[in-house]
Structures are given as structure tokens and as C-alpha cells.
Amino acid sequence: MEYFVQQTINALSVGGEYALLALGLAIVFSIMNLVNFAHGELITLGGYAMLFSAAWFVSDPIYLLPICVLAATGAAILFERVAFRPVRNAPETTGLLTAFGVSIVVQNALLIFVATRPKPVPIPDWMQGTIQIAGLHLPMVQVLETSCTVVAATGLILLLTKTNLGLAMRAAAKDFTVVRLMGIKADRVILGAFAVSGFLAGLAAVFILARRGAVDPMMGFSPVLKAFVACVLGGFGSLLGAAVGGLSLGMLEVLLQATLPSEVAGFRDAIVFLLVGAVLIWRPTGLLGKRVELGDKE
């Protein structure tokens, strides 16, 4: 029983992490058709912000957590201004390749100016421990991550349904031109989308760092690749699809982790991707993607 609950909360926390990242990708994609390849670098930059503030002025690791989230949000806004504005109305592939370039630039800049080897980041001790709930010992990180995902998802729903900015963002996903005709500034909507995606990436970064305890320039790639796959699995551009895709991918991963014999455990990621590929052959537009005929306007 305890094993089952532990694995469930593990699956929920991994799935939640992917869902946070996938939601950030989907919100940007739905508004400006940009596949943000540099999303992983938001995690990396959040981690490095923790590293530097710990070295310079922060003594209590608890303050590092908001710094990480703020840094990721700031980096997302910065990327938008510097790199993605020139390709705003370009075809999808152009934006994707630009973001790919940004990601390579950031990774290599960190390689040049910081270090090639992983560096340890201080994490509050209480995050590393376990917590006792109803007689069960559960890792603190996983419990926190699961609840954080729920809170963040609720917040996102409130933002999207109760505020003007959220309404504009949802409308922009359908037809940006009409939103601008209503007198809403395009820059503000896009900035909002990037800020939200950076915030969610920062949240995920906190938990990713709490697990690994160290930063290195390539650390953002693997989680974001999973988030991409989650987006494709759920149906690209759909927010609900991103959340469902992220959760199911995380659960599948934990399930395989728990059941695969040790000699094939190394192939886990390959098996996960192949299974997702099989799902996509069955439903090329993803689990929740709608089959849109060419030329249709929703």
C-alpha cells in the first residue's frame, strides 16, 4: 500500500513537472505559433541565478526559490524582446529554428563564461526530507511539487477566465487580428504569454533543482524535450492537451521505471518515445487535438 501511494505521488509530481513546462510551451505556441525551443534555457538560467545569488548575497537558501522563479520569468521576457520579436509573423519553422539558435547561444555562453562541469546549488534542507501524511512517509519535494502544480494550474485557469488579459490571450489564440482590432495591444498580450510561460518554467525549475542539487549548461534540454513530447501527445497548442499530455507522460515514465527489468531500464526514454509515436500513428493530431481541415477557420 505504502509503495503504491509513493509511486502514485511520484508519478503525479513528475507528470506535474512536465505539465508545468508543457503549459508554458502551449500558451506561447497558441498565441504566436512559436515553438519555444529555448524554454529549457529558462530552467537553466533560473538555476544559475540561484547559484550566483547564493555566492554573492543570499545566505538563507529559502530566498533562492523566488529568485529562481523571477529569473526564469525575466529571461522569458528578455528572449521575447531580443530574439523572438523579429520573427513574430514568420512561418512556424523560422520561429522554431530561431529559438533553437537562442538555446544553443545560451548553453554555449554558460559553457564559456561559467563552467563545463555541474556546480552544486544550495537547497533548503526541509525540501530534501520526507513528510508524514496519514502514517505514510512521502518525499517532501514530490508532495510540494504536486500541490504546486495544482495551485499553478488553478491560478492559470483563473487568470485565463477572470481577467481581461486572460480573455485577450484566449481570444488571441483564435484570431489575433480581431483582438488587435478591439484595441488591445499585441505587445502586451505576447508579453503576458511569455511572462506566464517563464513563471511556470521557473516553478518547475525549483523542483528540478531540488532533485538534482546542481546546475550545468545542458540541464534544461531533457525536461523540455519531455514537455515537447507531452505537447505533441496532447495536441499541439491546446492548453488542456498540454496538461493531459504532461500528466500521462509522467505517469507512463514512472510506471515503466517501476516495472522495467534493470537490464532494459536504460532504454526507458526510447521506449516512452516509441509508445508516444505509436499513439500518434493512431491519432496524428494528438489525444485532444482536433482534426482541422485545411483552410478551416475555427
Binding site: 512556424e92 513530447v229 505533441v232 536504460g266 532504454f267 526514454d269 518515445f273 500513428i281 496524428p284 494528438g286
Partner: peptide
């Protein structure tokens, strides 16, 4: 290609990336 040509667009591009990772995982494991 049977899978990738059916997907098209962004999904196909991400599928090529997943293919790269799958092959790399197989080589290293």
C-alpha cells in the same frame, strides 16, 4: 518516415528530435 510524413508541421519536427534521442539512447545503452 511513415510516421513522420503523416504528422506534418510542428509535430513532425518534434518527432524528428525524439527520433534522434531514441537512436542515441539505443547506441549508448
Amino acid at each position: 518516415g511513415l510516421a513522420i510524413s503523416r504528422l506534418g508541421g510542428v509535430a513532425a519536427e518534434i518527432a524528428t528530435l525524439a527520433f534522434l534521442v531514441i537512436v542515441h539512447v539505443i547506441f549508448t545503452n
